[in-house]
């Protein structure tokens, strides 16, 4: 037991050092890769809070990502708000949507596969709305004017973008760690393991699950803000794509769902696959196909995810 705990601590330390490395690099290419990996890890961690700790297998987390991205883009382009305010606004939209979707579906008793499909339907519905409303710019999306400067939340140095991605990753990982030690997290695990038993012991299952989805949704929405601020563009396909939802799930499942360090490892694995294949084969689809294969292998052979190799019990 102590052996596993020590190994987990060593792993955490190694990952922390790894996140610091890119700051020392002058290669924009490398820093960019690191930034994408950190965002994947942060989004995977956000998914993990609902999907791993809560067992709420969402197939539609892009709904929250897109809400955050559009909240940020619309507020600054249509209402002239400072883009920094996009962060709290996105968190509020993402969190609110998570709470509402959670309350509605969990009250109706939807679980497991049904919940997964409902989240997918929400993401699709949001995508259709974004594609047809005026305020979202319809299919052509929203372009944010270029105004480099910290005051406008736009950075030309990629390392600043990377720092923001790491900050979001740290926030999400802190939230996951709190879950692994606190009362709310224990309630969430109890509901995941056995809802009836949890309720018999006074755990308000619907509220606990909805709160987890709200927290997860808020963090995911923050990822949407970072996307808009680094690419200065959003459209319905980017915001609400099924691929984004699936990637968040993959990162968490491959690394180890319901563990604090799993999504970090998962993001490393996924990006290692992506970057090696991209340098070897240019045909689109090869890397995502490999993710699918890895997912099948992990589910079949190592259901606890890659983190199980490093730590015997994944609660580190």
């Amino acid at each position: 037991m102590t052996g596993a705990a020590a190994r987990t601590r060593a792993l955490a330390l190694a990952l922390a050092v790894l996140t610091l490395l890119p700051f020392a690099s002058h290669s924009q290419f490398f820093v960019n890769l690191a930034m994408l990996t950190a965002i994947s890890a942060a989004l995977g961690q956000a998914w993990n809070i609902a999907g791993g700790f809560g067992g709420l297998t969402s197939f539609g987390h892009a709904a929250f990502f897109g809400l955050g991205a559009y909240a940020d883009a619309i507020l600054q382009t249509r209402y002239g708000l400072n883009p920094w305010l996009g962060l709290p606004a996105a968190a509020a939209f993402g969190g609110g949507a998570g709470w509402l979707i959670g309350t509605a579906t969990f009250r109706a008793g939807l679980r497991g596969s049904y919940f997964a499909l409902v989240t997918l339907a929400f993401a699709q519905a949001f995508g259709v709305l974004a594609n047809s409303l005026d305020i979202t710019g319809g299919g052509s999306g929203i372009l944010v004017a270029l105004h480099p400067g910290a005051g406008r939340f736009q950075f030309t140095d990629r390392r600043a973008g990377y720092a923001l991605a790491v900050a979001l990753l740290a926030l999400a990982t802190l939230a996951a760690w709190r879950l692994s030690v606190g009362r709310f997290g224990a309630h969430l695990l109890a509901v995941r393991e056995n809802e009836d038993a949890a309720r018999a012991l006074g755990v308000p299952a619907v509220r606990v699950k909805s709160a987890a989805l709200a927290l997860s949704g808020a963090l995911t929405a923050l990822g949407g803000v970072l996307y808009v601020q680094s690419y200065l563009y959003i459209d319905p396909g980017i915001a609400f794509s099924a691929e984004r939802s699936v990637e968040m799930l993959l990162v968490a499942m491959i690394g180890g769902a319901g563990t604090v360090l799993g999504p970090l490892l998962g993001a490393l694995v996924v990006h290692a696959i992506a970057d090696t294949t991209r340098s070897l084969i240019t045909t689109p689809g090869v890397a995502p196909m490999l993710y699918g294969v890895v997912l099948l292998l992990i589910i079949g052979l190592l259901p606890g995810g890659v983190v199980r190799i490093a730590a015997v019990r994944g609660d580190g």
């Binding site: 109890a190 056995n194 038993a197 012991l201 006074g202």
Partner: peptide, 30 residues
């Protein structure tokens, strides 16, 4: 508080963690 005839453990949690879920009803500090 009821118990279940067909036992309903939180299978993935340790025995102590199982009991702690009960204790959390009256005690907030982990």
């Amino acid at each position: 508080v009821r118990t279940f005839q067909i036992t309903q453990p939180f299978a993935g949690l340790s025995v102590a963690e199982n009991i702690r879920i009960g204790a959390f009803l009256r005690t907030r500090a982990p």
